[in-house]
Design a protein around this nucleic acid. Structure first.
Length: 544
RNA sequence: GCUGGGUUCGUAUAACGGUUAGUACUCAAGAUUCUCAAUCUUGCAAUAGGAGUUCGAUUCUCCUACCCAGUACCA
C-alpha cells in the first residue's frame, strides 16, 4: 500500500529555535520534498507554564529564512493556521487550540483498561520521590508502586467518582503493562527492544489545565494528521516504547508512522550537547536569528552575523549526513535529491565553527559582484559613505568622480566603483561585512598609521624616497590602470636601485595606514592621482 | 544508580568481510608576490581496549572503558 509521505516539525514555543532544531526541521523538509509529500508545522504548546511570547513567530521566521517552507500548518503570511481549509484540513495546528480533542482519547484508553485516574498530589509525589532518594532508590510510578498510590486502581469506585467530580488536580496515567518486550524499528538505528518493566506510568492528561502531555497530544495528532514518518531528536528515543504502546492501545498500529531518531549536535570542544553558553564563549551563534528574550537579553544569530542562509543550511545538512560521495556544496534542490535517512549518522556530531566559515566563504565566492555590491551598499552607508547608481544621475551634482568612479573627498561612490572593489577583493572575504575591513581605505583616507609598521618602514632613508615617488606619480601620464601603474612603479623603483619591498611597504603605509593589505597599484588605480598625492603628503606631515 | 543509544585522523565523514584506511575543514612547510590574504604543491594526523567468528575484521558477536540521552502533571 502506498502511503502519502507526510512529516511534521513540531516545536514547542518555549524559546528560540536552536540550530539543532533547524537541522531536525531541515531533514524533515528534505525527506518530505524528496518523496513529493507534505511538510507540516505543528505547535506543541501544551505546557501552559513555559510559553514564551514571540517564540512561535521566531521559529517560523527562522525556518523561512532558511528556505524551509511548510506546506501545511502555516499560511502564506507566516501565521499558524487556526481555521480549517482545503490546504490546511487539520487546523488548528496549535495544540492549545486543539484542547477539546484530547480528553475523549484519554477516556477511551481508560474505558479499554489501558489507563487510569491518578489522584496523587504534587506534594505526595514529591514525598514519594524524596523517600526513595533517601533510601538511595529512584521512585518510579509503575506497576510496582501504583498499588500503593491513590488512583482508580486502588480506590473504591465511589471515592473515585467523588474525587473526579470534586477535585481538579487529578491526571490520567498510562497503565504500562508488566514484563512485555516492545520490539521497535528505527529508520536510522535499526531494531531496538525494551522491556516494559523498566518504564513508568506516564501522565497523559491533566485535569488542572485540561491539556494533554506531549505523549498523548503527539500520538493523537500524528494519527489525526496522517503522519507517515516521525523524524525527531534523539531525546525522544527513550519514550519510543511508550509511543508504540499508545498506538497499540488505540488500535492504530496499521497506520503508525515509522520513526527516525536524529543524534544531537554537540559542542565543538569537550563533551556535551551544544548550548548557548558555548556559542557565547567561543564566538559563534547557536541560533539562526538574533533573539531577545523577555528579560531583554539578546543572543546572536547566523543571519545577523552575516551568514548566507544557503551556507548555513548546507553546513547544517552536512552535520550528521553525507551524500555517499565527496560532494560538499549543495543547493536546497540538490539536497532534496540526494537526501537519504540511511546516510544519517547515528553518533552525535560536534559542531565545527571553522567549517561554517568555510561554507560562507564558498557561497560568497559564488555570488556575482553585482549581488555582493547590493549587499555591501547598506554597510558602506552605515560607515557614512554615499552610494549612487551612476555618475550622471541627479543626486551626484557637484561630485567630482575620478576615473574609477569615486569622489574620494565627498565620499560619493558609484556602484561601478564598489563593483570593482569587490571584484578584486572577493577571495579575501568570508562575510560581506569583511569588505569594509579589507578595503576601507579605498573609501576613506587613513588618519592613523600602524605604529609597528611605522617603526619598521618609515625609516629616514626610505621616507625621503617617498617624496620622489610622489613626484613621479604626479608626473605620470601613462594609462591609469592597475597593470600600467604597477609596471611604471616597478620600473621607477628598480631604475633607481631602491629596495622594492621597503619602498613599496612604506608607500602602502601612507596610502592604507598599514604595511599589509591590498596591492599598491590596485589602491592607486582606484583612489586616483589626486587622492594618492594627498595621502602621501598627509603621511609625510604626520610622520616626519 | 537504572534503561536506552553511541564510539574511524583535532573536527565532519568515506571504505559489498580483502584499499598503501580515502576526502573536506583546521594546522604546518614550500612555491608565488611589494606586504597581507588568496592560490598552488607537499606534509602531519584515525579504526577506544580486549576476546571471539573467519584464510582474512574498520565492517559480524561478546566483554570492558568512555561519551550522550531519558529517568517531570517539560517538550
Amino acid at each position: 500500500m502506498e502511503r502519502r509521505t507526510r512529516v511534521r516539525f513540531a516545536p514547542s514555543p518555549t524559546g528560540p529555535l536552536h540550530m539543532g532544531g533547524v537541522r531536525t526541521a531541515l531533514y524533515n523538509y528534505l525527506y518530505a520534498k524528496q518523496k513529493g509529500g507534505d511538510f507540516i508545522i505543528r505547535i506543541e504548546d501544551t505546557d501552559s507554564h513555559r510559553f514564551v511570547p514571540g517564540a512561535e513567530e521566531y521559529i517560523i521566521e527562522a525556518l523561512n529564512w532558511c528556505g524551509i517552507i511548510p506546506d501545511e500548518g502555516v499560511d502564506a503570511n507566516g501565521k499558524v493556521v487556526e481555521e480549517a481549509s482545503p490546504k490546511h484540513p487539520h487546523a488548528p495546528y496549535r495544540q492549545s487550540q486543539r484542547k477539546p480533542i484530547y480528553r475523549k482519547y484519554a477516556e477511551q484508553l481508560i474505558a479499554n483498561g489501558y489507563a487510569y485516574y491518578a489522584f496523587d498530589t504534587a506534594d505526595e509525589l514529591a514525598n514519594a520521590r524524596n523517600e526513595a532518594e533517601a533510601a538511595k532508590e529512584t521512585f518510579i510510578y509503575n506497576q510496582t508502586t501504583r498499588e500503593k498510590m491513590r488512583n482508580s486502581l486502588t480506590l473504591p469506585e465511589e471515592e473515585v467518582k467523588k474525587l473526579l467530580e470534586e477535585t481538579t488536580d487529578w491526571t490520567i496515567r498510562f497503565k504500562m503493562p508488566v514484563d512485555t518486550v516492545v520490539k521497535m524499528d528505527d529508520l536510522i538505528r535499526g531494531h531496538i527492544e525494551v522491556n516494559t518493566s523498566t518504564l513508568d506510568d506516564k501522565v497523559l492528561w491533566k485535569r488542572a489545565d485540561e491539556l494533554p502531555t506531549y505523549h498523548l497530544a503527539n500520538i493523537v495528532d500524528d494519527h489525526l494528521m496522517e503522519i507517515s514518518e516521525v523524524i525527531r531528536g534523539e531525546e525522544w528515543l527513550p519514550s519510543l516504547p511508550l509511543h508504540y504502546m499508545l498506538y497499540k492501545a488505540f488500535g492504530w498500529e496499521e497506520t503508525m508512522p515509522r520513526f527516525a531518531h536524529l543524534s544531537l549536535l554537540l559542542k565543538p570542544v569537550g563533551n556535551g550537547k551544544l548550548s548557548k553558553r558555548d556559542g557565547d564563549k567561543m564566538g559563534f551563534p547557536v541560533f539562526p536569528l538574533k533573539w531577545t528574550n523577555p528579560e531583554g537579553e539578546t543572543s546572536r544569530g547566523y543571519r545577523e552575523d552575516g551568514y548566507f542562509p544557503e551556507a548555513f543550511v548546507n553546513m547544517l545538512a552536512m552535520l550528521g549526513w553525507n551524500p555517499g560521495d565527496d560532494r560538499e556544496m549543495f543547493t536546497m534542490e540538490e539536497l532534496i535529491a540526494a537526501f537519504s535517512l540511511d546516510k544519517v549518522q547515528k553518533a552525535g556530531a560536534k559542531f565545527n565553527p571553522e567549517k561554517a566559515h568555510w561554507y560562507n566563504r564558498e557561497y560568497l565566492r559564488l555570488k556575482t559582484d553585482e549581488e555582493l555590491t547590493d549587499l555591501l551598499v547598506p554597510i558602506l552607508e552605515e560607515h557614512g559613505m554615499n552610494v549612487v547608481d551612476c555618475p550622471k544621475c541627479a543626486l551626484t551634482a557637484g561630485a567630482d568622480f575620478n576615473v574609477a568612479g569615486a569622489d574620494m573627498q565627498k565620499h560619493i561612490f558609484t556602484k561601478e566603483y564598489i563593483n570593482g572593489v569587490i571584484a578584486f577583493t572577493k577571495e579575501r572575504a568570508t562575510f560581506v561585512k569583511d569588505f569594509w575591513d579589507i578595503a576601507h581605505y579605498l573609501f576613506v583616507a587613513p588618519e592613523e598609521f600602524t605604529q609597528k609598521d611605522v617603526d619598521k618602514f618609515w625609516r629616514p632613508e626610505i621616507a625621503e624616497k617617498i617624496g620622489s615617488l610622489a613626484s613621479f606619480i604626479k608626473e605620470y601620464d601613462g594609462t591609469w590602470s592597475v597593470e600600467a601603474l604597477e609596471a611604471a612603479l616597478e620600473e621607477f623603483i628598480k631604475g633607481n636601485e631602491w629596495p622594492m619591498g621597503k619602498v613599496m611597504n612604506a608607500l602602502r603605509l601612507t596610502l592604507a595606514g598599514s604595511a599589509s593589505g591590498l596591492g599598491i597599484a590596485d589602491i592607486i588605480a582606484r583612489i586616483g592621482k589626486a587622492e594618492t598625492l594627498r595621502r602621501i603628503a598627509f603621511a609625510e606631515e604626520k610622520l616626519n
